[in-house]
C-alpha cells in the first residue's frame, strides 16, 4: 500500500484537472464548480423527533465546512448530487433558518441540485434558497451528474459520470488487525462516486476493481490507496 499524505489531492480525469478536498468535496477549477453529494441536512432532527437523542450541531458544523470550502475555492457554482434534506421532518425551523442565513452569505453562488431518492420524499428545497432542481443525467460537460451510480454500460460509455448515494467508505487495516473505516472518493474508469458530505452518516464498503483509484479522507488529509 503506497500512501502520500495531503490535505488536497489533484488528479486529471476525463481530461479535466480536479481537486479532491478532505472536507468531502470535489472542486473543478476550470469551471469554478464545487461538487458535493448527500448533505442530508437536518438528519439529526429526524432522529430527535423520533425519540432518538442524537445531540444537535451536526447540520450547523457541516454548513460551516461548506462555507470554508466555498471561501477556499472561490467557487461560483455548487452542484449537489442529491439528498438535500434527510426527510420531511428535517425541514425544522432551526434547519431552515440556518440554510437561509447561509444562502444569504453566498448570494451570488449558483446552486444546482440533482434530485436523489431522499429528495423525492423530503421535497424540494424552499424556493427562497434559489436552488435549481434537475433530474439525473444533468450535463456539466464532460461530466454527467447523477445521484445514484449508473449501472448501464451504454450510458457509462457515453460520458464521465459523477454520482453519490452510496456514501462510499474504505476500510484500512493495520498489521495488528485493527481497522478503520474512512469515507472515500472512488474513481472508476468512467464513473466517480463522491463521499457523503454529511458527517452524521455511515457508509457502504467500496469494492475497487482493477484500475480503480480510491482516495480515503480523514479530517486533515486525502490519501490514495492502491
Amino acid at each position: 500500500m503506497s500512501i502520500g499524505v495531503d490535505t488536497v489531492k489533484t488528479l486529471n480525469w476525463a481530461g479535466e484537472d480536479l481537486v479532491l478536498y478532505s472536507q468531502r468535496a470535489l472542486y473543478w477549477p476550470r469551471m469554478q464548480t464545487l461538487f458535493i453529494t448527500d448533505p442530508h441536512w437536518g438528519k439529526g432532527e429526524t432522529f430527535r423527533q423520533s425519540g432518538i437523542p442524537i445531540p444537535p450541531g451536526g447540520t450547523l458544523s457541516d454548513l460551516a465546512r461548506l462555507t470554508d470550502l466555498l471561501v477556499t475555492t472561490k467557487a461560483q457554482r455548487l452542484i449537489v448530487l442529491g439528498d438535500f434534506f434527510h426527510t420531511e421532518h428535517s425541514r425544522a425551523p432551526q434547519i431552515l433558518d440556518a440554510l437561509h442565513a447561509w444562502r444569504a452569505a453566498h448570494r451570488t453562488l449558483e446552486i444546482v441540485l440533482v434530485r436523489g431518492n431522499h429528495d423525492r420524499h423530503a421535497g424540494a428545497p424552499p424556493a427562497a434558497l434559489d436552488i435549481t432542481g434537475v433530474a439525473a443525467g444533468y450535463a456539466a460537460s464532460p461530466f454527467f451528474c447523477h445521484h445514484e451510480p449508473v449501472d448501464d454500460a451504454a450510458e457509462k460509455r457515453s460520458g464521465y459520470i459523477l454520482a453519490g448515494h452510496l456514501h462510499p467508505v474504505f476500510t484500512l487495516r493495520d498489521r495488528d488487525g485493527s481497522q478503520v473505516r474512512l469515507p472515500c472518493f472512488h474513481f472508476a474508469k468512467r464513473q466517480a462516486i463522491l463521499p457523503a458530505f454529511a458527517s452524521f452518516s455511515g457508509g457502504y464498503g467500496v469494492t475497487a476493481a482493477k484500475g480503480d483509484r480510491v482516495f480515503v479522507i480523514s479530517q486533515a488529509f486525502v490519501v490514495e490507496v492502491t
Partner: peptide, 21 residues
C-alpha cells in the same frame, strides 16, 4: 432506514456535541 445510523457515527456525534454524556 432513515432512522438508522451506525453506533460509530452516533458515537462521533456524542463525542463532538455531547462529550459529557
Amino acid at each position: 432506514r432513515q432512522l438508522q445510523a451506525s453506533s460509530s457515527v452516533i458515537y462521533d456525534a456524542f463525542v463532538t456535541y455531547d462529550p459529557d454524556n
